[in-house]
């Protein structure tokens, strides 16, 4: 087979990130000279990413910033965590706008579906809504379990166990027409019936996480 002239492969590299925390280029230049003087060879020709998160609302000319760095033998490959005007400038200058691995992971929230169950959930039955919210048109009996990676809505009495945010989503909530549950849990934080009863007696309400602990909000 003939050798391909082009190949596209994904590879990860570790790059140094230079945080620009001041909009005044003279100050930046002075500080940079001081840093380079400490270890002149360390930064020589090193590829750098500029983190511009501190410059959100201060306009800085990216081109002059770049030439300032090039003069000092630094290679700028791109910028990260920058506001939109910077991204536009970077595009004109042929610089990449990159997202760190951490940023990319948090930004990517998988789309969540909805599972609807149009019947009473009886004792011994278990319903799991994977990567979805769960909506029950009916009651959840004692001894029944409803689990969802998202939120749980019960249009009836919730008497069994309800576990929302099973995948760790702390924004999930449990809403029921009558909260009489044996157990409610949001992202692993749970209350047994007696904890729940201290806050709510078979009323319509919403259980959610506030910081590290659960809270009930009564609904009209």
């Amino acid at each position: 087979m003939a050798k391909q002239n082009l190949e596209l492969k994904a590879t990860s590299f570790t790059l140094s990130v230079l945080y620009i925390n001041n909009a005044d280029l003279d100050i930046i230049a002075a500080e940079l000279d001081k840093k380079l003087a400490q270890a002149p060879h360390f930064f020589l020709g090193a590829p750098l990413i500029l983190n511009l998160s501190a410059l959100d609302d201060t306009p800085v000319d990216l081109a002059s910033l770049r030439s300032l760095l090039i003069e000092r033998q630094l290679v700028i490959v791109g910028i990260t965590e920058a506001s939109i005007p910077f991204s536009v400038q970077a595009k004109d200058l042929g610089l990449a706008v990159v997202k760190s691995g951490k940023q990319a992971a948090t930004a990517k929230i998988p789309p969540r579906g909805t599972k609807i169950v149009k019947q009473n959930i009886r004792s011994g039955q278990q319903i799991y809504a994977k990567d979805a919210d769960l909506i029950v048109f009916g009651a959840v009996g004692n001894g029944a379990e409803v689990i969802a990676d998202g939120s749980i809505h019960v249009y009836g009495a919730l008497r069994g166990k309800a576990m929302a945010g099973a995948g760790g989503d702390t924004q999930s909530v449990i809403i029921a027409s009558s909260l009489e549950a044996e157990l409610v849990s949001v992202a692993g934080q749970y209350w047994l019936a007696e904890n729940l009863q201290q806050h709510c007696q078979a009323q319509r309400g919403c259980v959610r996480l506030e910081g590290e602990s659960l809270t009930v909000e009564l609904l009209p």
Binding site: Q119, N120, I121, R122, S123, G124, Q125, G141, N142, G143, A144
Partner: peptide
């Protein structure tokens, strides 16, 4: 009542 609820679940499944 609890056991009846369980049987109702069986009837439905």
């Amino acid at each position: 009542v609890r056991d009846s609820d369980r049987i109702l679940g069986m009837l439905q499944s």
